[in-house]
């Protein structure tokens, strides 16, 4: 049985295809301004690459902020359930998930059977999200890819007092003007995001093991900052960025909508 999960995020969209519950293929692309088109074009090019016909896909689940614009999905679920399913599939010991997305971040607590116990999402603000790191990267004129390496070289993380993206950007600019090193600034930024996220973790209750998902999880500097704040290790699965789509595909696999 073939199932598909489509995760339309605010910045990137991801598609995962499962064959009898195992990952068969995945693809990531930019969402752009047309969420519906992004979903279908990434999905179509992936099934073509895999040599699968749309008619042979048994079920499709969409998730992410653009989930309702995926007209060809059989069902939609929120990111909460999908991230939980994806993380639990990767490691069934996981009790806490931190997901940093493009426009929001969330913390999910799981029970031993993989059900969602509670969740918490950041409020109406970009701080602590992928967008926040992008804005800072632009202000520093550094590629996001280099954030991890540079921050890990920092001797003394700068203190970033504000949590608002717009104000933090100007704070960073004034730190640059004062001659603060980029390494310390980036480490400071990571710490400010980590502080925000860890308070969300404490809201649902810190229950190790903790897993981090979402594209931002590739940033090992940030992961380290979060580990320091939480005082516990944070696992990052290989499939961190496609975790939501993976979960959606897993939920899709539970149901054969088009026998």
């Amino acid at each position: 049985m073939i199932s598909a999960g489509i995760d339309i995020g605010s910045i990137t969209s991801k598609v995962v295809i499962l064959d009898d519950g195992r990952i068969y293929g995945s693809k990531i692309g930019f969402t752009g301004y047309n969420a519906e088109r992004a979903g279908s074009s990434i999905y179509n090019s992936l099934i073509e690459e895999l040599g699968i016909k749309h008619e042979n896909v048994n079920s499709i689940v969409a998730t992410g902020y653009g989930r309702n614009s995926v007209q060809f999905a059989d069902k939609t679920y929120t990111e909460i359930l999908c991230h939980a399913a994806g993380a639990f599939y990767n490691n069934s010991d996981i009790r806490t998930i931190i997901d940093i997305g493009g426009q929001d971040s969330k913390v999910i607590s799981l029970s031993a059977d993989g059900n969602v116990k509670d969740f918490c999402m950041n409020d109406k603000c970009a701080a602590g999200t992928g967008r926040f790191l992008e804005v800072i990267a632009r202000a520093l004129e550094i590629d996001l890819e280099n954030f991890a390496r540079l921050s890990l070289q920092s001797g003394k993380p700068a203190s970033i007092s504000t949590t608002c993206t717009v104000f933090a950007e100007s704070e960073v600019i004034s730190l640059i003007a004062k001659g603060e090193s980029r390494e310390n600034i980036i480490a400071g930024i990571h710490d400010s995001v980590a502080s925000r996220l860890s308070s969300m973790v404490y809201r649902v209750g810190l229950n190790p093991p903790v897993m981090m998902t979402g594209g931002v999880a590739k940033n090992s500097g940030l992961v380290k900052a979060i580990e320091n704040r939480l005082g516990t290790g944070v696992l990052v699965p290989e499939s961190a960025q496609i975790n939501g789509a993976l979960g959606a595909a897993l939920l899709a696999a539970k149901q054969n909508y088009r026998q």
Binding site: Y65, Y77, T78, E79, I80, L81, N115, V116, F119, M121
Partner: peptide
């Protein structure tokens, strides 16, 4: 954002 939270909350109730 409220919509996503409400949808997820109802999913938990169903679950």
């Amino acid at each position: 954002q409220a919509q996503t939270r409400i949808d997820a909350f109802i999913e938990l109730i169903r679950q």
